[in-house]
């Protein structure tokens, strides 16, 4: 499921489902119609008359109805209202049963935390860190040092007399620094900004 969720505007939803069946391997038409009805999208209207959120829901219905080994979603909740977004995240969460996997790309980290077991943080085409979500959160922490101290890490913020750095927990322990856990969003920001400023966080 690509970022740009463009479907055939001249088709009705019903026709769109039928065309998807023709083009998609291991596609369950009944399941797709059930998803469309669950999203309360009228089957006899033209795709062009759907709102952006409804188009995304139709696209998701088509994607969910394929029995694939790997589902790739690019920003799949873009344009959805918060209630539908939660429903969709729940559906995505239910997908990887048996041999099936989901590769989910998003800038909305709260969503990533909801659906992902394993995460990879990417910046400028480079994977900065990858692992189970809990392991990544465990791996990094925040330390507070006197202003002007130079340590290996990303300077997250400064107070009047102190600087707050995000560093690896190993680094904090080996340097006898007092540390506190940080949320995933802060880890993400530290790694990405650190990569942009070429700061060594390994």
């Amino acid at each position: 499921m690509p970022d740009g969720k463009e479907l055939y505007g001249s088709y009705t939803e019903e026709k769109m489902v039928k065309v998807s069946k023709e083009l998609t391997e291991r596609f369950d038409e009944k399941k797709c119609v059930a998803y469309v009805e669950r999203f309360q999208i009228p089957l006899n209207e033209k795709v062009s008359s759907l709102s952006s959120g409804q188009t995304t829901q139709l696209y998701l219905s088509i994607a969910f109805s394929q029995d694939a080994e790997l589902y790739i979603f690019g920003e799949p909740t873009w344009g959805l209202d918060p209630i539908v977004r939660s429903q969709v995240l729940e559906m995505i969460r239910d997908l990887p049963l048996g041999d099936r996997s989901v590769l989910y790309t998003s800038h909305i980290l709260s969503e990533v935390e909801k659906v992902a077991d394993k995460v990879a943080i990417m910046n400028k085409g480079k994977i900065l860190d990858m692992g189970y979500l809990d392991e990544i959160k465990e791996k990094y922490c925040a330390v507070t040092v006197p202003m002007g101290s130079e340590i290996d890490g990303y300077k997250y913020k400064s107070t009047k007399n102190e600087d707050v750095y995000v560093v690896t927990r190993d680094y904090a322990i080996s340097n006898n620094l007092e540390y506190t856990p940080v949320p995933f969003e802060v880890v993400f920001e530290a790694l990405v900004m650190g990569n942009n400023n070429s700061i060594n966080m390994q």
């Binding site: 690509p2 740009g4 463009e6 055939y8 505007g9 083009l23 998609t24 391997e25």
Partner: peptide, 12 residues
């Protein structure tokens, strides 16, 4: 033009 080619390319 309509960017629907993506829909085809991810399937066939």
């Amino acid at each position: 033009e309509n960017e629907t080619i993506m829909f085809l390319l991810v399937r066939k």
